[in-house]
Amino acid sequence: MAAVQVSEAEKVYIMHGVRDDLRLDGRGCEDYRHMEIETDVVSNTDGSAKISLGHTDVLVGVKAEIGKPRAMVPDEGYLEFFVDCSANATPEFEGRGGEELGVELSNTLYKVFNNRHSVDLRSLCICPGENCWVLYVDVLLLQCDGNLFDAISIAIKAALFNTRIPKVHISEDEEGVKEIELSDDPYDCMRLNVENVPCIVTLCKVGHRHVVDATLQEKACSVASLLISVTHRGTVTCVRKMGGGSLDPESIFEMTEAGKRVGKALHAPLMELLQKEESLGKKRQKVGFLG
């Protein structure tokens, strides 16, 4: 991640503040920064969402294409992730500089999202064993100020909610060759059920306490962080420890509990916001980057 240089004095200041539950911008240890979400920003895609979490900006686009299902699970579709760390975020990502981070991010996303418990992959099947929908989820990182995983996961959830997959009619002609017809009506489409899609919560250990939604400066003071993906029911689906430091089991347990609490509290307002945005329908003014 684009690193920021923090001096010794600044580190001590941040750690003392966190100890007293007061961070650099006045937040508590478990508060998120100001978040802005908007869906349907790019019209070439089947679904898109833009999120800005403080100074972190992420744009997600979902395109649905017809492909062959995987041999092991012939009656399910699948998701393909691609994270593009663009040079917009920091000049170090120019050319192939952002590939390493991009690969790390997309591998984690595969683990968290590409399974039947998160997304109903069966609904993506058209013809078992022959055709299925493949959702290409492209994540574009525009600005990087810490906490990439959280922002990306919320954006993916919003984009999947916004995705409209055209309905398919399968017709068989005399020789038994199947013909797939996509319906021409743009409103005749299938929506995905994103109830069970989890959200990722990253907790960084700063001193003896943990903080949620760490900025780059706070990240520079922490030695290890824990990544937890939580569903709306509070179920933990994936846990990963990142960073070079070591954590003792007690703190991992504490952080998991805190992560569950915070993650569960994320889902309800998010779904409410998405439903509200959807209900505005055509009247909604698309702002995108112009606002």
Binding site: V42, N44, G61, D138, L140
Partner: peptide, 20 residues
């Protein structure tokens, strides 16, 4: 120094490589 790139979802057909 300029770099031009297109988002993978920018065109009607998905672009595999954003730049390069």
């Amino acid at each position: 120094n300029c770099q031009f790139s297109m988002a993978t979802f920018s065109t009607a057909e998905r672009k595999r490589r954003p730049h390069g």
